[in-house]
Nucleic acid binder design. Structure first.
Lengths: 329, 329
DNA sequence: GGGCGGCGATAGGAGACGGCTATCAATCCG
DNA sequence: CGGATTGATAGCCGTCTCCTATCGCCGCCC
């Protein structure tokens, strides 16, 4: 197969029709160029140049090959440029997976600031459940994901965005509404509604209820958070929602009310994760920082840890950390 | 600059997403492929693949580069094929220069046989004077030329086509027409018309006249062979024409007559020449042979040297027929 | 949880290829 | 007929790439 060096050599020769000049143009010696052209003729099995000591002419094949060689070299040049252009950070597309219990409450705070700050970055959102997100992330269909702890982060790097407490959400027409923060044990006496399989919020709710000593759950399973909310409003039970969701869903006139738990309140952390092996890690860290700023600026009902105010608390997700957060939540 | 080997390596990897398989496909070892891809990333200054020991993913740049690499490799492949296709003999175009005193008499014999025998060969004719033909040939604008001896063949190779005698052409209404072959000295008593500068026939005529001891020429110079013929028919003098031209121009009803000279009659050889350095020499030799056959088959008024007669002994038109025709004209 | 198998990266040595300088052979010029 | 110029050749050397052997890491499975 012809080499790039051979094509370059021949293209220069075809341009100049003079071995020494062409060699000089390429910064090589005349014999080197002679060799390269001869080698190209050898591999192609065709004479490309008619050589006399006084004249250099291209054969028919030579004309054709010269034309194509120029095209090929141009293509390689463009390839190199395109590689660098495509590799430029904050350009092109970034595919972000977001879990359904976070998306509707977080995205309004994020989208505008991200678009403003990175106008050349196309953000493509994928609202998927945690397990699906893990698959897509591993397969490269997603670059980033917004997940809730615990994250079993094999080969993933998680960057902390914010913490949110769980709140008790109950019907707005409750005859004996709680006053102020309630203890976790309150849950024991209530029918707790949970979502159906596949949503991480379900697992988190069950975990909290286990801590609180609950063993009776409402039999109905909600397929979506919207359904869950409607069920509560309909008086079928109570549920736990992250504070970011609770303040929205239990807004005045919604038919719902929400209250927080005594400290230490149960909660979860929301993190931005990417494959540890991604070469865009630095770019993604900057995105995480922008997201934190956006969350603060938007006044979301979250707890922002001190360290995240200063720097990105990004780290590879160890099993221990995940376990600790799980027991805390 | 990226090398072809690197692009091939990366393209294979992008296809398989597996170093060992890709290496096997290319018939190289896995470390070699690893190296090649790493080198490509180095020269491009961009990560192309996300490597984990368990997973290989393309980055954005990788996707783009893979696409372009495939295109470039395809282009190189096509280049190689095109080089060989273009180099195939008896295809494409061949540019042939023919001197004006030969073209109208030779080409009718040649064109059909050549087209029949080499249907894929496009013959492009250029009727030019000898000096111009030499320039065009040297510049590569012509591949072949049909010239008359003497040919100053610096860097040129001549292949003999045929010999033609000069004949004396005189007005058809001459009161004392010659009977049979005449001696060269006949020219001394006649006003000889010659062509203007630039035509090799002029030089050849002058040479013959010098041999014959002529010093008086008609003052008019013909710009073309057609003009020359008209001048003779008009009674302004006589001239010398090659037999191939004479038998055509002095045909019955033309107002001209022609007669041959005593042996050894003056004449010239018509040759097919090409640059000695041309890689198509073999192809051109075959063309020359075909031309000789065509000349024989067409019954042109020429002398064919022995070796070319034996080569086509079955092909009729032996030298007796030519001689008979010569005496007839 | 620990051994096992498969993966890509790394190390070191052998080989080839391409590069250079020096020189030759052929052609054009005066 | 000599000088100058051009492309080809010879011989040597550096570098680059390829190979085999091995490592470190990760996922799997008993």
């Amino acid at each position: 197969m012809p080499t790039v060096a051979q094509l370059r050599a021949f293209a220069a020769l075809a341009e100049r029709l003079h071995f020494r000049e062409a060699a000089a143009e390429l910064g090589m010696s005349q014999p080197a160029l002679s060799n390269a052209v001869a080698a190209l003729e050898e591999t192609l099995g065709t004479r490309l140049v008619e050589r006399t000591t006084r004249r250099v002419l291209l054969t028919r094949s030579g004309e054709e090959v010269a034309r194509r060689a120029r095209a090929v070299l141009g293509g390689i040049e463009e390839l190199a440029e395109a590689a660098q252009a495509t590799g430029r950070p904050f350009t092109g597309e970034v595919h972000i997976g977001v879990i359904p219990t976070v998306a509707p409450y977080l995205l309004p705070a994020l989208l505008r600031p991200l678009k403003t700050r990175y106008p050349d970055l196309g953000i493509v959102l994928h609202e998927q459940q945690t397990s699906r997100i893990h698959l897509s992330l591993a397969a490269g269909q997603l670059d980033l994901a917004v997940l809730a702890t615990p994250v079993d982060g094999l080969g993933l790097t998680a960057m902390h965005l914010y913490d949110e407490d769980f709140m008790l959400v109950y019907p707005g027409d409750d005859p004996r509404p709680p006053r102020g923060p309630v203890p976790l044990t309150t849950l024991r006496e209530l029918p707790v509604l949970v979502m159906e399989e596949g949503h991480c919020l379900r697992e988190q709710t069950l975990e909290v209820c286990h801590e609180a000593g609950v063993d009776g759950f409402a039999s109905t399973r909600a397929a979506s958070l919207a359904t869950l909310v409607q069920l509560v409003a309909g008086g079928l039970g109570v549920t736990l929602l992250p504070s970011t969701a609770a303040v929205i869903e239990a807004r005045p006139g919604s038919g719902l009310a929400a209250t927080s738990f005594h400290a230490p309140a149960p909660g979860r952390s929301i993190v931005l994760v990417h494959r540890t092996s991604s070469p865009r890690a630095q770019e993604f860290a900057a995105l995480a920082e922008t997201m934190r700023s956006a969350v603060r600026a938007h006044g979301m009902a979250v707890r922002l840890p001190e360290q995240s105010v200063t720097a990105a608390a990004s780290r590879s997700v160890p099993r221990q950390a995940a376990a600790a957060r799980r027991s805390r939540g």
